[in-house]
């Protein structure tokens, strides 16, 4: 039991970068970017190939980041300069990356079992492993928070919030969109590189469904932690990623559910659907009861004044 929970926290931390990437596109830029499924595997593939060819793991991870940046930038350019619908730009890039990833890997999958990865020396010490991962993720989170408070970062946030306004103030929204999607996929690719090193293999299908997993983490985190400011929103995303993994681990432990490991994607989709629908229903009833109460109050006040 305990072991599966620490495992869930480890996974949650590694996938937190994926979730931060999805947060940047879906929440900050308001751009539904599906490149993620491709760029996650690209990150894993690049890192695995480099490491199995004897390169240092940190160089491999950095190069994975760079490849993610490039993939995201292309999606951004397709959308802004090519005027292709946002959803379609991401899908096109995701499909293109599937072939590219096989080219990078040279075969459908690569094993890293005996290779020296970022985690080789600490993987057996559970608590140290979690601590190191947590520190790395928090450093990246802090850098991202800082960036989002610079002139460039403000312009990026405003692009998702009110394009017309930032354009009238001299912000180039196309640049912001390309930059944001690029950065997001860079983070997603690092996440893929970390997961490949942790699980000991990279597979061309490792990215399938990542977009929904990222989205589930974002939504869960926002529900638990809230989004008062950038600091809390990015923290929420990380917490969401960990909670998501813990929920899954618990679900799999409940034997009466008879879950198979292949049910993962179905469960993820259900989590996202529930998380999206409940607030909508909630809002509807709240709004309705508020409207009824206020109308009654105002009508009573009007009667009191003798208007009726």
């Amino acid at each position: 039991m305990f072991q599966s929970l620490t495992g869930a926290v480890e996974l949650g931390l590694m996938y937190a970068l994926l979730a931060l990437g999805v947060y940047i596109t879906f929440r900050i830029l308001d751009f539904p970017d599906l490149t993620v499924d491709g760029s996650f595997a690209t990150g894993g593939a690049v890192a695995a190939v480099m490491i199995s060819n004897g390169y240092a793991a940190w160089i491999a991870t950095l190069l994975a980041f760079a490849c993610g940046l490039a993939a995201g930038a292309i999606t951004g350019l397709l959308h802004t300069k090519g005027k292709i619908n946002g959803l379609l730009s991401g899908i096109l890039m995701m499909i293109a990356l599937y072939s590219i990833n096989i080219r990078i890997l040279g075969k459908p999958n690569i094993s890293l079992i005996d290779a020296k990865t970022l985690f080789s020396s600490i993987a057996s010490k559970t608590w140290l492993y979690i601590l190191v991962l947590a520190v790395v993720i928090l450093v990246i989170k802090t850098l991202l928070d800082a960036f989002l408070h610079t002139d460039r970062g403000l312009s990026l946030r405003a692009t998702g919030d009110n394009k017309r306004m930032i354009r009238s103030l001299g912000g180039n929204t196309d640049t912001s969109i390309v930059l944001g999607i690029s950065l997001a996929n860079g983070l997603v690719a690092i996440s893929g590189a970390l997961v490949a090193q942790d699980t000991g293999f990279a597979d061309v299908n490792m990215g399938v469904g990542m977009i929904v997993i990222g989205l589930a983490s974002v939504i869960i985190g926002e529900a638990i932690v809230g989004t008062r400011s950038v600091f809390w929103a990015t923290l929420a995303v990380i917490v969401g990623s960990i909670v998501y993994r813990i929920v899954l681990a618990l679900a799999y432990r409940a034997e009466w559910l008879h879950l198979k490991s292949t049910d993962l994607k179905l469960i993820t989709a259900l989590i996202v659907i529930v998380a999206l629908v409940i607030p909508t229903i909630n809002r509807y009833y709240k709004q309705k009861s508020l409207a009824r109460r206020r109308t009654a109050e105002l009508a009573a006040a009007a009667r009191g004044k003798g208007a009726i």
Binding site: L154, S155, D161, L169, G171
Partner: peptide, 24 residues
Amino acid sequence: APTMTIEENLAMAYRRGKPRGLSW
């Protein structure tokens, strides 16, 4: 921009016509 603060909105206006770099 509704989800951003008053001071952040002013900061964006402050950079009107100037490059937007990595200053706070």
